[in-house]
Amino acid sequence: MNIHVEVRDVTQQNLDPVEALHFVEAPGHGAGALFLGAVRNRNQGRDVDGVSYDVFAPLAEQSFREICAEAQDKWGDGLRLFVIHGKGRLDVGGLSIVIAAGSPHRDEAFKACRYVIEEIKERSPVWKQEHYTDGDSEWVQGHALCQHGDHAHHD
C-alpha cells in the first residue's frame, strides 16, 4: 500500500516528520516533499496561546484516502503519500499536520504535496478552536462542505 492516512491524538503522541519521510521513500524515487502545519502565535490580530483540533476521524481518514487517490490519478500511481492530522490541544509551534509525497521526480512530489494540503483544508472534517492569551477561545470560521456528488474536481 503506497498511501498512509491517520488521525492521531497529539496529547498522547506528537506528529513525526521523519516517520512521514521514511514512508514515502522507494528505490525508484529521487524526490520527497514534506509539508508541516504548525500552530502560529498570532491570527487575525489576536495573540494565540494554542489550538484545539476537533476531528470526525472516520470521515476525515476517508477524505484523506480519496484526496491521495486523486493525487495519484493526477501525478502517477507510483506516488507514495503520507498524511497524518492531529486531534486535541497543541501549544504554539506544535505540529497539527504532516504530509509527505515521494515520487521519481520533484515536480510530482511538490505538486502532490500542495494538492493534498489544499484539498484537506476545504474538504476534511476538522475544526480549530483557537485559545488566546487573554483567556478567550473561538472556533475558527471555515469552508462549508459540499454534499455528496456536489464536489467539483478542480485543477
Binding site: G37, Y53, V55, F56, P58, L59, A60, Q62, H85, S96, I97, I117, I120, K121, E122, R123, S124, P125, V126, W127, K128, W139, V140, Q141, G142, H143, A144, L145, C146, Q147, H148, G149
Partner: peptide, 26 residues
C-alpha cells in the same frame, strides 16, 4: 462515517450521523 449526505438522502432508524460545520483543518 463515509460521506457527506445530500438533503434528500434517507437513513436507517437507528443511524449514527454527524453534523459538520464549515471546516478549518490543516
Amino acid at each position: 462515517e463515509r460521506v457527506v449526505l445530500a438533503e434528500t438522502a434517507t437513513f436507517s432508524s437507528d443511524a449514527r450521523l454527524a453534523i459538520l460545520p464549515p471546516v478549518s483543518g490543516g
